[in-house]
Design a protein around this nucleic acid. Structure first.
Lengths: 338, 338
DNA sequence: CGGTATCTTGATATCGATAACATTCGATGT
DNA sequence: ACATCGAATGTTATCGATATCAAGATACCG
């Protein structure tokens, strides 16, 4: 069946490829009238508009996007650059980028925009450069981000921690508050020897750390900090096992990641301790896995979907030349068993 | 700064928007020569080509994709329709769609194609309809898929199980073989009372089930089948706990998913059984989580990245009118502790 | 009934790149 | 020396939609 496809094109225009000119002929009006009738804000007599729209629907008319974009000198496209390979920093095991993408796609679809997906190496493709704006996911707001921005010269919005780098519009979760909410719970539970588990170099994690430490300080508590580069359950296990071996005294663990938290819980249970009675544990990201974990993990939830929606809106606003500011989404502690 | 953006456009073309005509003037040749010089297979004198290319690079010339696509009557775009919301069948906790997407994006980028990402509701957007082909992810090869195909009238490739529905080109993992490889290992380990844990209604899972059962049968073994709709660790835990309560005799568990497998392992360990000595467990998908689990999970690995690459290639081939067939990727058992 | 305001529609030019056909020029053969 | 061939480049037309400016139709006013 597909064999003749190529020829179909060259031979007969029909092929279902109706143009505005065709519609115009059918309706007995001019091209431009069809254009106006089909557009949202075109000024046409109600009767004409209805007739044209009916015809368009009947014949399955499809707008030629390239032609419109060429004429309007814009692409109606937002490029999303995602880091899709797993790495030390991003175990990929979480749904994070997908949920963000879902939010972005949904929001842009309602605005009649398209999502052009690329990985970093593909960012120099002409189609990307023609985008109306760029959204950056999973790059960590600094380094390469700036670089790409310079090269592309496009309005850009970044997901991450609104760090010192205020050159970009950044959307991200309130990691500081997330850290604080964990601290808050520990205080409420009367824990006095909390442990922080995670990489304090990473921008977003550093925020969680800062919020955590600060809140504890107001209660006169200084946590034990375990600066851990890896993000796996195994490393969480090891870290806590190490503490236990050294007979360090602690009664609470805040991990910057559900995986680490799960490893920590395992280590505690294997050592014969009770969770949460002896040691209470809080993770981060509120992954489905943490929720399905046994015992179900208490974790800080980030609203990724909404984050995606926000990224999309800001990208569009930026393109339109509106004033756009960075924004931080609230995170909230989801209390389960641990 | 962005305030004047709109006017910039209307006012001065400069704005970095160099066209072929501009380049032609600079190089002292005609537009078409520039076009040929910049294209891969244009016939131009080597000297001219180099001069033009140098100029293009120097001035940062960017091809206007809309114009090219309009003229060539194709979009150089493949639409990827993904189900991005979590569901009973797809816990989203696995990297599955992202890795596929990564493979697709990479392959299409090298072919100078763009990836247009949409969710199902966005599939009727003009930009999607203009795509050269469509790739469907996470829809389960039947139902809606056909529907969309009819509506869109586009070459289409689907990720999933090459079921009875041979109307489409389907790329997927060899789930039957995956199931068989689990059975094979159980046999090799001398286990005689294996359990199958998973939803046999779901197309892909049904394949795993079939392969598993069939291979066991050749060794005269009939597994216990637990037809389980949920895909969470908790439900895996419950299922195995139930078996233990009923004092069912079993020495091996094959779960169609790492989460279920992890739950199963937990149930076994909590019941005082040793894994893998008393009961050996095999999961599916080889997720980073399973690998980081304690004990590290033995699991069937699917090559998603390659799957993405294949989907992309087939989509392109289909568009070009070449003959394209469904294809099944081998899966392999990754043996770890369990 | 003339004249102006309003509404609706149309003719033309244009966005930027490329295919198809035309042309120029030097080289080669006899 | 002339005809012919082929490489290199140019001219023109075109893809489909829309902004701009102009014109026709209708209504309303005094």
């Amino acid at each position: 069946m597909p064999k003749s496809r190529r020829n179909d094109k060259a031979a007969a225009a029909p092929e279902g490829a109706l143009t505005m000119a065709d519609l115009a002929r059918l309706a007995g009006v001019s091209k431009i009238t069809v254009s106006r009738a089909l557009s949202e804000n075109g000024i046409v007599a109600a009767g004409t508009r209805d007739k044209v729209r009916a015809l368009a629907a009947e014949h399955g008319y499809k707008l030629n996007v390239s032609a419109r974009n060429l004429r309007l000198r814009q692409s109606h496209t937002i490029a999303v650059i995602v880091e899709m390979k797993p790495s030390v920093n991003r175990p990929m095991s979480d749904p994070y980028p997908l949920e963000l993408l879902g939010g972005i796609a949904q929001e842009l679809a309602t605005a009649n925009y398209s999502v052009l997906l690329t990985t970093r190496p593909g960012a120099l493709a002409p189609a990307v450069q023609a985008a109306d704006a760029v959204i950056l996911l999973g790059q960590g707001a600094r380094q390469q981000a700036v670089h790409l921005f310079d090269r592309l010269r496009l309005p850009m919005v970044v997901w991450g921690a609104p760090g010192a780098d205020e050159a970009h519009v950044v959307v991200g979760s309130d990691n500081r508050q997330g850290g604080a909410s964990a601290a808050e719970r520990f205080v409420a539970l009367g824990r006095h020897h909390p442990v922080f588990l995670g990489d304090t170099d990473h921008a977003e994690m550093a925020e969680r750390h800062a919020g955590f430490v600060k809140h504890l300080k107001t209660h006169g508590i200084a946590p034990i900090i375990i600066d851990h580069k890896a993000f796996t359950a195994e490393s969480g296990f090891e870290a806590v096992a190490g503490l236990l071996r050294k007979k360090t005294r602690f009664d609470a663990v805040f991990a910057i990641n559900d995986l680490l938290a799960m490893g920590a819980v395992r280590a505690l249970i294997e050592a014969g301790l009770r969770v949460p009675e002896d040691v209470t544990v809080i993770g981060y990201d509120d992954t489905p896995l943490g929720a399905a974990f046994i015992p179900p993990l208490t974790s800080v939830h980030q609203n990724w979907h909404e984050g995606g929606v926000l990224l999309a809106r800001k990208a569009l606003a930026l393109f339109r030349g509106e004033k756009v500011t960075s924004e931080t989404l609230p995170s909230r502690l989801v209390v389960r068993t641990t």
